[in-house]
Simulated assay, not measured.
Amino acid sequence: MRENIKNSENGRKPQWLRKKLQFGAQKQMDQLLKNVGIHTICQEAKCPNISECFSKKNATFLILGAICTRRCSYCNVATGKPLGVNEKEIEQVTTSVKALELKYVVITSPARDDLKDGGAKQFSLVTKNILKELPNTKVELLIPDFQGNLDSLKLVANSGATVLGHNIETVPRLYKIRKAANYKRSLQVLKKLKALAPKETKTKTALMVGLGESQEEMIEVMKDLREVGCDYLSIGQYLAPSNEYEKVVEYVRPSQFEKYKQIALDMGFEFVHSSPYTRSSYLAHEYVGE
């Protein structure tokens, strides 16, 4: 089997990463979200799946604004001084869920280290409001680390969300790309979420590949994740938003993604999405059988 393709810096991606875009559907969804006044991580992070997901009326809502207090070298979300918490956002998200007739909702946020609770209260209020007005809808939360604050983790763990996610992102050796984050702390976040949430709640994380990690390092991370009880795993190809961000070291072949998936399932993960275009919230409903 041929090795993964090293990034030649000529801007050309391998054939398996040339995805057909659906701009008409994306434009329609962009307008709907603009009318409501809500952000999505799909737009802010320049997700490569955006046109596909928007064509199916799937979106991951970005609460607590679109400005992050951290400057990770792989992420396109703007960095700076965030605005205050928008209380209207609680109803705005619910309105968007109704308009899109969603049965499964993913909610995330930028890191908000400027807030004492890291934004946990807003996550809880948004979730509870959706479940109150749309009791047949399921909510998945993808949270920052809240700097490990136990009270914040308790709030989101008991919000009523079906899935609680926190992304580990990469192997420990490469954690320099995650500014102000800590590998062990992120593991503890997942461990605490599992312990604090109702028994039926699932925990989830995501890993990027193509940054120079080895298969052995990936396997060690998977073992760490199973030790803290993580149920679901997403593995996808890192793609730099522009030349200003962390460079892609290699394009991982689809066969390697399949190998990672089988390794993870053999370790005991309940559900794994592993493919070049997989992202933490991509096809999120499939993890819970929706």
Rank of each mutant, 00 (worst) to 15 (best):
Arg2Thr: 07
Arg2Tyr: 05
Asn4Asp: 08
Lys6Met: 09
Pro14His: 03
Leu17Gly: 00
Lys19Val: 13
Phe23Gln: 15
Phe23Pro: 06
Gln31Lys: 15
Asn35Ala: 12
Asn35Glu: 15
Ile38Asn: 13
Thr40Pro: 01
Ala45Gln: 13
Pro48Asp: 02
Ser51Pro: 02
Glu52His: 10
Cys53His: 06
Phe54Asp: 12
Asn58Asp: 15
Thr60Glu: 10
Phe61Arg: 06
Leu62Gly: 03
Leu64Gly: 07
Ala66Pro: 01
Ala66Trp: 07
Thr69Pro: 01
Arg71Thr: 08
Ser73Leu: 05
Cys75Pro: 03
Asn76His: 12
Val77Gly: 04
Ala78Cys: 05
Ala78Lys: 15
Thr79His: 11
Leu83Met: 12
Gly84Phe: 09
Val85Thr: 14
Val85Cys: 15
Glu87Thr: 13
Glu89Asp: 02
Ile90Asn: 14
Glu91Trp: 13
Gln92Asn: 15
Thr94Met: 13
Thr94Cys: 14
Thr94Gly: 09
Val97Glu: 14
Ala99Lys: 15
Leu100Val: 04
Leu100Tyr: 12
Glu101His: 13
Tyr104Val: 09
Val106Ile: 00
Ile107Thr: 10
Thr108Ala: 01
Lys116Asp: 06
Lys121Thr: 12
Ser124Cys: 14
Leu131Phe: 07
Lys132Leu: 14
Leu134Cys: 09
Asn136Phe: 14
Asn136Asp: 15
Thr137Met: 10
Thr137Ala: 13
Lys138Ser: 13
Lys138Leu: 15
Glu140Met: 06
Leu141His: 02
Leu141Met: 03
Asp151His: 03
Ser152Lys: 14
Ser152Val: 14
Leu153Val: 08
Val156Asp: 08
Gly160Glu: 10
Gly160Cys: 10
Thr162Ala: 13
Val163Gln: 11
Gly165Phe: 04
Asn167Trp: 06
Arg173Gln: 12
Leu174Gly: 02
Leu174Ala: 04
Tyr175Glu: 10
Ile177Ser: 02
Ala181Asn: 04
Ala181His: 07
Ser186Trp: 01
Gln188Thr: 05
Val189Trp: 00
Lys192Asn: 11
Ala195Phe: 03
Leu196Ile: 06
Leu196Gly: 01
Leu196His: 01
Lys199Ile: 00
Thr203His: 00
Thr205Arg: 08
Met208Arg: 05
Met208Ala: 03
Gly210Phe: 00
Leu211Arg: 03
Leu211Ile: 00
Gly212Cys: 05
Ser214Gly: 09
Glu217Pro: 00
Met218Gln: 11
Met218Pro: 02
Glu220Cys: 01
Val221His: 02
Lys223Ser: 08
Arg226Pro: 03
Val228Glu: 04
Gly229Ile: 04
Gly229Cys: 04
Gly229Ser: 01
Ile235Leu: 09
Gln237Glu: 07
Ala240Met: 09
Ser242Tyr: 04
Tyr245His: 09
Tyr245Trp: 06
Val248Asn: 00
Val249Ala: 08
Ser255Gly: 07
Lys259Tyr: 02
Lys259Thr: 01
Tyr260Glu: 03
Leu265Trp: 12
Leu265Ile: 12
Asp266Asn: 14
Phe269Met: 14
Glu270Asp: 04
Glu270Gln: 11
Tyr277Ser: 01
Ser280Gln: 15
Glu286His: 13
Gly289Phe: 06
Glu290His: 09
